[in-house]
Lab assay of single mutants.
Amino acid sequence: MVYKIRDKETGKVYEVTIDEETNEITVYDVKTGKPVKTVNMTIEELKEAGYEVEPV
């Protein structure tokens, strides 16, 4: 599923895909559409880390 996340401190917005089964999150560069990095976190962990998470 695709989400937009926003860093509450910097205001930067990222587009991510989240595999609900493995909790693998792939972060994409919004301008190029290319993957930047992959992390292993849940949506709740993202929120605790200071991100706003919205489904696209």
Results as ranks from 00 to 15, higher is better:
Met1Ile: 13
Val2Arg: 15
Tyr3Lys: 08
Tyr3Ala: 10
Lys4Val: 14
Lys4Ala: 05
Lys4Leu: 15
Lys4Pro: 02
Lys4Gln: 12
Ile5Phe: 04
Ile5Trp: 04
Arg6Val: 13
Arg6Leu: 09
Arg6Pro: 00
Arg6Gly: 01
Asp7Ile: 03
Asp7His: 15
Lys8Ala: 06
Lys8Gly: 04
Glu9Val: 14
Glu9Cys: 15
Glu9His: 13
Glu9Asn: 12
Thr10Pro: 00
Thr10Met: 01
Thr10Tyr: 01
Gly11Thr: 00
Gly11Lys: 03
Lys12Ser: 08
Val13Ser: 07
Val13Ala: 05
Val13Trp: 14
Val13Met: 07
Tyr14Met: 03
Tyr14Trp: 13
Glu15Trp: 15
Glu15Asp: 11
Val16His: 00
Thr17Lys: 08
Ile18Asp: 00
Asp19Tyr: 06
Asp19Trp: 06
Asp19Thr: 05
Glu20Cys: 13
Glu20Ser: 12
Thr22Asp: 03
Ile25Asn: 00
Ile25Met: 12
Thr26Gln: 05
Thr26Met: 06
Val27Thr: 02
Tyr28Val: 08
Asp29Leu: 02
Asp29Thr: 01
Asp29Ile: 03
Lys31Asn: 14
Lys31Glu: 15
Lys31Asp: 15
Thr32Glu: 06
Thr32Cys: 06
Gly33His: 09
Gly33Met: 06
Gly33Tyr: 03
Gly33Ala: 05
Lys34Ala: 10
Lys34Met: 13
Lys34Trp: 11
Lys34Ile: 11
Lys34Asp: 09
Lys34Ser: 08
Pro35Lys: 13
Pro35Asn: 05
Val36Lys: 04
Val36Gly: 04
Lys37Asn: 07
Lys37Ile: 13
Lys37Phe: 15
Lys37Ala: 15
Lys37Met: 14
Lys37Leu: 15
Thr38Ala: 05
Val39Lys: 04
Asn40Gly: 06
Asn40Gln: 12
Asn40Trp: 13
Thr42Met: 02
Ile43Tyr: 04
Ile43Asp: 00
Glu44Lys: 10
Glu44Trp: 08
Glu45Leu: 06
Leu46Met: 07
Lys47Ile: 12
Lys47Val: 11
Lys47Met: 13
Glu48Pro: 01
Glu48Ser: 12
Glu48Gly: 10
Glu48His: 12
Ala49Asn: 09
Ala49Lys: 11
Gly50Ile: 04
Gly50Leu: 04
Tyr51Leu: 03
Glu52Ser: 05
Val53Ser: 02
Val53Tyr: 04
Val53Asp: 02
Val53Glu: 02
Glu54Asn: 06
Pro55Met: 12
Pro55Thr: 09
Pro55Tyr: 09
Pro55Arg: 09
Pro55Asn: 09
Val56Ile: 12
Val56Ser: 10
Val56Thr: 09
